[in-house]
Amino acid sequence: MKVIQTKIGDHIIHIITEFEKPNKILHNFQTNTEAIQQPDLIIKIKNGYGIPFQDYEVTITKKQNKIIYTRADYLVEVDSEYKTATISVYNDFALKHALTNLYSSFIVHHNWGLLIHSSCVLENGKAHLFSGHSGAGKSTAAKLSFPRQLLSDEASLVKITPNQVTVFNSPFRSELEAEPFEGNVELASIQILFQAIQNKRVKLEKSDALLHLMDKVFFWPKSQEEVKTIMKLMTQLVKQVPVYELHFQKNNTFWELIS
């Protein structure tokens, strides 16, 4: 068994894993070298569960004091207070999705923030988020933004309070790695991406922005209370952060519209 103490956002996470060899997914979770602290969440990871990926459908059930998330290739069991969880997986792909969905549910449970399907880049000390439907160009925009600091290429970690919206470095990555980044930075803008032959940036009304972002949150919970929490967080988000449609060429000139 291997123990990893990591910090994601503001949260200390202890991961106890059966993966003894270096693991591509867990490699992204930076080791916290500070003195051992009381964890906010303890995750035990087991191998050898289920069958290869079938689809993204997740079944959620509640038994006594546990919440159980089941997909063909993974099983997540977490206590109702989101203090301890066990993840059983078929392979690395399943582990990546299980960890993403667990942490997304964890931060919603604590009314802390959202994991948003997007890439995120730093410019002059502020963060700019790029979202859109599958294939819209989130990873492309991230690649074209080099040498700007990359905070995420798939799942942006956004903390939302009534007075401030900030972004942390995200370990929930797809293909692009970046230098470690400590702390959090103000989220200055959100771009909904559309590939085009000409660059154009149009600010959205808050109601339209909310509609565009509704399906970009990782793992939409099924309970009414969790849905209310997500809607509250998203409403706070669009009130504080301007959201734009960004029609962009596949080169870095779109940054002229953002900077």
Score class of each variant (00 low, 15 high):
22 P>A: 01
70 T>W: 00
256 E>I: 02
255 W>L: 10
183 G>Q: 06
104 S>V: 09
12 I>V: 15
39 P>M: 10
30 Q>R: 15
71 R>S: 04
35 A>E: 14
116 I>G: 06
112 W>Q: 02
203 K>G: 07
187 L>H: 08
234 M>D: 01
25 I>P: 01
221 P>K: 07
149 Q>G: 06
85 A>E: 00
165 V>H: 01
156 S>Y: 06
168 F>I: 04
250 K>F: 13
30 Q>K: 14
213 L>D: 07
88 S>R: 08
57 E>I: 05
249 Q>C: 14
71 R>N: 03
89 V>Q: 08
115 L>E: 13
23 N>A: 08
222 K>R: 11
212 H>K: 15
58 V>T: 10
183 G>D: 05
6 T>N: 08
181 F>I: 10
146 F>E: 04
45 I>R: 01
191 Q>L: 09
157 L>T: 02
149 Q>E: 11
74 Y>D: 12
162 P>H: 04
193 L>V: 04
236 Q>A: 13
39 P>C: 08
183 G>C: 09
63 K>D: 15
39 P>R: 09
47 N>D: 08
258 I>K: 00
59 T>M: 15
242 P>M: 03
233 L>I: 12
2 K>C: 05
3 V>S: 13
69 Y>N: 07
98 A>R: 02
49 Y>T: 11
251 N>Q: 11
13 I>M: 11
183 G>K: 03
146 F>V: 02
